[in-house]
């Protein structure tokens, strides 16, 4: 177990290096860092002399070879130093990110709760009543959930609950009531896939021999479902929650924009608008690290939940 965990951890390193390389190359290809450093207006109106520019280049290490610059970048990233944000008056991008993190974490947790509350009973109802009315209903929901962009769902929820009924605020943050619509938007759109997979996982489990045996020995259907089938279907479901992390992170960018929810996603959009390299690279690398960690966590959890799995 420890050996496996260690090996899995080592495997993560090339992926992380690959991502930092990807980010470094993308940011460098996208324009002169000097212009970004000074802000595009300053660069356009040529407020600095060539000598001053050369001095800044030297101070920022931009006169060094690219490979050397990449190593410096890597060292800084490893220290959690993503550089200074220029749209937020030179504050460190890392601390801006940390400040916004709780809001995004709250949104993600609430959305995940919504998704579980929909997909767990939904998938079970559909699997138990296969090809009957509840199954059809769940199928329709999951297809529409896939076809409907979540930003539109968000606006429609605003229209219904904020404009028409006046129950919930249109946007912003501060109270739990501000969190309801963003969490519903993110959670229901993610639940479509999860419901489908819960359903097919449970259908598969219900066809296994041990379920037939349990039924044959006269156990109550409820016991068979919860104690025998569901427990085995849970393995796939847990994986799914780990795989939901990229969806939560990407989705929070959209949902935070719809509802002006002041999290990492909104910070990222602001960074993009201002071409703020420090902020952009902080968010990209942080998200990638979260995704990799989640995948790692799921793999390790697997060995705990399912004792049959032994990695060599």
């Amino acid at each position: 177990m420890t050996g496996y965990a260690l090996r899995r951890l080592l495997q993560v390193i090339p992926t992380l290096v690959g991502i930092t390389l990807l980010v470094f190359v993308t940011l460098r290809l996208s324009g002169d860092p000097i212009a970004a450093y000074l802000g595009s207006d300053a660069a356009d109106s040529a407020v600095i002399t060539p000598e001053q520019e050369a001095a800044i280049r030297e101070r920022l290490g931009l006169d060094r070879p690219l490979a050397f610059q990449y190593l410096v970048f890597l060292r800084n990233v490893a220290r959690g130093d993503f550089g200074q944000s220029f749209i937020y008056q030179g504050r460190p991008a890392a601390s801006l990110l940390l400040e916004r993190l709780p809001a995004t974490a709250a949104l993600a947790a609430a959305a995940l709760l919504v998704a579980v509350l929909i997909s767990l009973p939904g998938g079970m109802l559909a699997a138990v009543n296969r090809n009957k009315a509840p199954d059809t209903f769940v199928n329709v929901y999951s297809v529409i959930g896939d076809a409907m962009p979540n930003f539109w769902l968000g606006v429609m929820l605003i229209l219904l609950f904020s404009v028409r009924l006046g129950w919930l605020p249109v946007s912003g943050s501060g109270t739990w009531r501000h969190l309801v619509l963003p969490a519903l938007t993110l959670g229901t759109s993610m639940a479509a896939l999860q419901t489908r997979l819960m359903r097919s996982g449970l259908i598969e489990a219900l066809q296994q021999d041990y379920v037939r045996t349990a039924r044959a020995k006269g156990l109550a259907p409820r016991t068979v479902l919860f104690k025998h089938a569901l427990r085995n279907a849970a393995l796939g479901y847990v994986t799914l929650l780990g795989l939901a992390v990229p969806g939560l992170l990407g989705g929070s960018v959209v949902v935070e924009r719809i509802f002006a929810w002041p999290g990492m996603g909104l910070l990222f959009i602001n960074g993009l608008g201002g071409r703020d390299m420090a902020l952009i690279q902080a968010v990209v690398i942080f998200s990638a690290a979260m995704v990799i960690l989640a995948n790692l966590g799921v793999d390790l959890l697997y060995t705990v939940i399912d004792p049959r799995i032994r990695y060599q």
Binding site: P14, T15, G18, G247, L249, G250, V253, F268, V291
Partner: peptide, 21 residues
């Protein structure tokens, strides 16, 4: 391995970064 790297960054964030820059 290349697939692993690309899927580590959530789609929306990856596309937005490149398009914006």
């Amino acid at each position: 391995r290349l697939v692993d790297i690309i899927v580590s960054v959530p789609n929306t964030i990856l596309y937005l970064t490149i398009l914006a820059l």
